[in-house]
Structures are given as C-alpha cells and as structure tokens.
Computed example of a mutant assay.
Amino acid sequence: MAKTSLSEGGTPKTRRGGFLLFSMVLAGLSFAAHAKDIPTLHVGWTIPAEEAKYWMMRRPDAFPDLGKTYKIEWTHFQGTAPMVEAMLAGALDCSSQAPLSLGQGAVNGGLKAYIVAQHAGESAKSFSVYWGVLDGSPIKTVEDLKGKTIGVNVYGSGVAGQLAAILHKHGLDMSKDVKLVETGFPGSEAALRSGRVDAAVFVQPFAGRAQAKGGIHSLFSMQDLMPNTVQIVEVCRKDIADKSPALIKRYVRDLTRAMKMALAHRDETLKVDAEITHAPVAALQDYLLTDKDFARDPGAHPDFAAIQTMFDEYAKLGLLKHPLKVSDFRRNDLTAPLQ
C-alpha cells in the first residue's frame, strides 16, 4: 500500500492538496456566481457627439462601478430612429435619442421612457447643423429647394424633423415639395459633390472636412429655427428604470462623471474620439469641444424646456400625431447630474 507522507504540521500532503483544490473550486464558483449576478444594461449609441459614452466604452477603468456593480453591453446604430425600434422590441434598455425620434416612438409605438441626460445641443455660440449647397448652385434661398433633392442622415431622424420645420417656415411641405435621400452623415459631402442631392446635411467632423476642401457653403442651419436646439439626449425605458432605479442611477452617475471628464481633459477626449470614429486626432483637433462643435452641459442636464418647444413644433407640423408633455418623460431622481 502506498504511504501518505505528512507535512510539518502533521497534515497529510494529499489531504492538504485536496483541500486547496476544493477551496479554489469554491472560489471560482463564487466568482462566477457573483459575475452572473451583476446586472447588465443594453445600451445603444451612435456618432457623433456622444463623448460621455465614448469615455465609458474606451476608458472603463475611470468608472469605479462599471464592470463591478453593473455592466453595459454596447450596440452601435446608424441613427436614433432604429434605436427606438430596438427599445420597443426590448433589445435596448437605454439609448441616445433625438427629441423627434423619442416623440414618434412614444406616439406611434407606445414607448415609455425617461430622459436621463443630454449629450449635445446647440446655442447661439455653438456649431449648428446645416444644409450646404455647392458654390455656384442656383439654389440661393430655402424657397429655391422646391422640387429639389435634399439629403438627410436617416429617414425619421431628429435632423429630418428639423428640416421639415425649416421648410415649413418658408412655405414648403417636406412630404410634397422636395425629395429626400438618405445619405448618412459620412456620405453627405460625396452625395452633394456628385450631384446625387442638391443640398446635403452637415455635422462635425464632416462639416469641417468639407469646408477645408472648399466649394460648399451653408444655405441654412438650425439656428434659423430656434436658438437652443436639443440634438441628442439619453433615454432609458420606463419599465427598466422603475423596476431597477438603483441600476439607472449608477449609469446616469457615470454619464455625469464621463461628461465632466470629457470636457476637463480635452487631449484625452481627442484620443477617445479618434478611437471611436477612426478619424485622426489632427482632423478632430480643430473643432472638437470648441465653438465649432455642439454645445454640452457640464453636468449633462437635459434642457427640458427646449425639448418641450420642439415637441410643440413637431405636433404643429404633423410629425407627431398629438402633443406631448415633456414632464411625462421626466423622473428627477434619475436625471443628470447625479453624483
């Protein structure tokens, strides 16, 4: 029979080894169980102007709760309207939204959500989304767009809604008087220069790139519609938020922290944006977080008054089938800034 040798303390080595192995197995099971218990948020994002999210995706170590008390599964979309469908289908818990996309999701699909933060907007001192035309184009005024082809990023987007409002202000009906072509933001310049569209929508960084090449000028911008336009807010489904408010608070707390970090550490934000957009830092340097960029609230606080104004305008235009109250999308204890 094989002998079992003893350790210095008198414990059989085989028994000690078995105990250590058993302990390691228990520790592994405990870690796996703990990891499984961490709640996960499914979050949609897009480009541009979501620097707070980009920081959370690319610099997660800067957020003590992220990956420890909760996790995020990120999904990239080409615009806000598709994220409404994903939220209605239960595939997303939170996402970035334009006020129009959110409003149409609520009116047409019954989406119930809270606006918890704001990523970007416009002010009198900031960049404003604009539609450009080629130098030498016969289109000199908004009225000249009648019968022409106009580019938008995505059908049904907030930008498309703002276009409708501008056209209406100048006596044109977007559904009857012009033709829309979906180009996406990156493809706007090429669509305009090739003649696919007569007027194209521009946001940064694509606006700066087009201006550097020359031959394009602004025909009108959102500043012609209203001085304070909300472009992108963060929303979370009401059922998720009401069921797990602590989870949403962690997320909004991190969005608040991320916005402050993005604004305070511009050099690092340039690197983060470059990683997300695959644009060189040099291409971002000239505009990102300057007066050539969108306006951002340091605490990511939503401009509810401006959103209500936009809801009212969209209802007048028929883009929303009935009026909406922004208060129905508000829960103060879940709204940025949170510490």
Rank of each mutant, 00 (worst) to 15 (best):
P138F: 07
T290Q: 08
E143K: 11
G110D: 11
A49W: 07
D254Q: 09
L92G: 13
L145D: 10
K169L: 14
M57K: 10
A305P: 05
D93R: 02
S5I: 13
E234D: 01
S96D: 14
E51A: 11
F22A: 15
D37T: 09
V181P: 00
S157M: 15
K169D: 14
M83T: 06
Q339W: 01
F127W: 06
C236L: 12
K271V: 14
Q285L: 03
P186W: 04
E275C: 01
K292D: 13
H42Q: 10
P64W: 06
F304P: 03
P337E: 07
T11Y: 06
A200R: 00
P82V: 01
M310T: 10
F31P: 00
T290V: 02
T335L: 06
V281W: 04
K146L: 03
P205V: 05
Q118F: 04
T40M: 12
A113K: 09
P12D: 06
I307A: 07
K321H: 09
E85I: 09
L289Y: 00
D224H: 12
V252R: 03
A98N: 15
S123F: 04
D177K: 08
T277K: 12
S5H: 11
L338G: 06
L41V: 02
S96C: 12
T309C: 06
D93A: 12
V159M: 13
G318Q: 07
K238P: 11
R16K: 14
P298E: 02
H119C: 02
M1P: 08
K148D: 04
K292F: 11
W74E: 05
F294D: 09
A165M: 10
V178F: 10
D328P: 02
Q204V: 01
E85P: 06
G171F: 09
L26N: 00
I47F: 15
G161L: 08
A106H: 14
K71Y: 05
A106W: 08
S101L: 02
V272Y: 00
L163I: 09
A295W: 11
T75C: 02
A306M: 09
G9H: 14
F220H: 13
R253K: 15
A336G: 08
V326K: 01
I276W: 13
D224Q: 11
D239N: 12
T75E: 11
E313Y: 01
R250D: 11
G110K: 07
M83P: 05
V152R: 09
R330C: 00
V326H: 00
L317N: 04
Y314D: 04
K53A: 13
L172K: 08
K325V: 00
G67L: 03
D37A: 12
R16Y: 15
A200N: 01
S23D: 02
A106P: 08
H34G: 14
A98Y: 13
A210T: 01
G105F: 10
L288Q: 11
E73T: 11
K68R: 15
F19H: 02
R330L: 02
D173C: 08
D177I: 06
F127T: 02
S123V: 03
E143T: 09
M174Q: 13
Y114W: 01
R296Y: 15
A52I: 13
L192V: 12
A117G: 14
A199W: 01
V116P: 11
K68P: 02
P337R: 04
T69S: 15
A165W: 08
A2S: 15
I248H: 05
A300I: 03
A212Y: 06
